[in-house]
Simulated scan of single mutants.
Amino acid sequence: MEISDLPKDKKIILFDGVCNLCNSSVQFVIKHDKKDVFRFVALQSELGQKIIRRIDTFNIDSIILYEPEKGYRYKARAALEIVKHLSGAYRVLLVFTILPTSLLNRIYDFIAKNRYKWFGKKESCMIPTPDLANKFLV
């Protein structure tokens, strides 16, 4: 898939495909994405690397929320933007939007730095089940 082929009506979540925490988070988002807002791309994939180069960022190993027509958010702001679109009581987490981005990103970075130690790591990116394959872009 090329950047020009990305769905214009979907928000694209780029995630660390070998991180167990990240994979669990993707599964959580899929479960609570009742309006079918999101598509997913592993950072390690060819498409993930193309998108990263396109948004002109560097050394990003965090979650990135990319909207082809609007740009991107990363780290804590991406996570909070994702929460806005989920069903359920999880929207209560939006209370954290009142905190400064710098503080939120320090917390995010602390968790990200320790994610492999705390949650483990896979040898390769997850392969979606056939019923979820349409949620993942390759």
Rank of each mutant, 00 (worst) to 15 (best):
L93G: 12
L99F: 13
H85G: 12
K70E: 11
Y74H: 13
S124N: 11
F58P: 07
Y72T: 06
V29K: 02
L65T: 12
K31W: 09
I51V: 11
N59P: 04
H85L: 14
Y72N: 15
F58S: 14
F40S: 02
D61L: 04
A42S: 06
K75R: 15
L65Q: 01
C22F: 03
R91S: 04
L93C: 15
A76M: 00
S124K: 15
Y66L: 05
L132F: 02
K70S: 06
L47Q: 08
P68D: 10
K122E: 11
N23M: 09
A89F: 13
K34L: 13
F136I: 01
K75W: 05
K31P: 01
F40A: 08
P128Y: 08
G17V: 07
K121G: 05
S102W: 12
I51L: 09
L14Q: 00
R106E: 13
S24F: 02
I98W: 10
E81S: 12
L86V: 11
K50T: 08
K117C: 04
R53G: 10
D33R: 08
H32Q: 14
K84F: 03
E81Y: 07
S102N: 02
D56K: 14
I63Q: 00
Q27C: 10
K34H: 12
N23I: 02
H85C: 08
S124H: 09
